Amino acid sequence: GEGIETTLSLRCALPDMAMAAALSAAHLAAMLFPPNLRRLYVILDNDPAGDGARHSLLERATDAGIEAIVLSPETEDFNEDLRHFGLAALRASIADQLMRKDRICYLTRAA
């Protein structure tokens, strides 16, 4: 995830999913991938810095053979989504963005 608040907010919805906060869009774009990583969910803020980080990170992940999927907030970031809409709505908004088996694994347990 891009920032601490964004990552922690999504962590509330997906408590069993491994996550790391990069602390900024620039750090997110430069993130080092663990050697066994096969799928990466990218969580970032809905702003120009997030757009740039997304492009760079998706390109690097693809080049490394990692399936990269962007999770997009409805507002400026997932923290704002959580505060404005609540946890149940946040889970619902990300459900369609997750791969089916991850949705079953992480959202079924979190409910």
Rank of each mutant, 00 (worst) to 15 (best):
2 E>S: 08
4 I>N: 09
5 E>F: 10
6 T>S: 09
7 T>W: 04
7 T>C: 10
8 L>E: 11
8 L>N: 13
9 S>M: 07
10 L>M: 11
10 L>G: 03
11 R>A: 08
14 L>N: 03
14 L>T: 06
14 L>G: 02
15 P>T: 08
16 D>H: 13
16 D>T: 09
18 A>P: 12
18 A>K: 13
19 M>D: 05
20 A>F: 11
20 A>M: 10
21 A>Q: 09
21 A>C: 04
21 A>N: 10
22 A>Q: 07
23 L>E: 14
24 S>V: 02
25 A>S: 14
27 H>Y: 10
28 L>F: 02
28 L>R: 10
29 A>H: 04
30 A>S: 13
30 A>D: 15
32 L>D: 07
32 L>W: 02
32 L>N: 11
32 L>R: 15
33 F>K: 15
34 P>D: 01
34 P>R: 12
36 N>R: 12
36 N>S: 11
39 R>M: 00
39 R>P: 02
40 L>T: 11
40 L>I: 06
41 Y>C: 12
41 Y>T: 10
41 Y>R: 10
43 I>H: 05
44 L>G: 14
45 D>C: 06
45 D>E: 14
47 D>Y: 03
48 P>H: 06
50 G>L: 02
50 G>M: 08
50 G>S: 06
51 D>R: 13
53 A>C: 12
54 R>H: 01
54 R>L: 04
56 S>Y: 00
56 S>C: 03
57 L>A: 02
57 L>D: 00
57 L>K: 13
57 L>R: 13
58 L>R: 15
61 A>I: 09
62 T>R: 15
62 T>G: 07
64 A>N: 13
64 A>T: 15
65 G>S: 06
65 G>P: 09
67 E>W: 00
67 E>M: 00
69 I>A: 05
69 I>W: 01
70 V>C: 09
70 V>W: 02
70 V>M: 03
72 S>M: 11
72 S>P: 00
73 P>T: 03
73 P>A: 08
74 E>V: 14
74 E>R: 15
75 T>H: 10
76 E>W: 00
76 E>H: 04
79 N>I: 09
80 E>Q: 13
80 E>V: 14
81 D>T: 07
81 D>R: 01
82 L>M: 07
82 L>F: 12
82 L>C: 10
83 R>V: 12
84 H>V: 15
84 H>P: 00
86 G>W: 09
89 A>Q: 07
91 R>N: 01
92 A>S: 11
93 S>H: 06
93 S>P: 01
94 I>N: 02
95 A>E: 04
97 Q>C: 10
98 L>E: 09
98 L>D: 09
99 M>P: 06
100 R>H: 11
100 R>F: 10
101 K>Y: 15
102 D>A: 00
102 D>E: 13
104 I>R: 05
105 C>N: 07
107 L>D: 05
109 R>T: 08
109 R>F: 14
111 A>S: 11
111 A>G: 11
111 A>D: 08
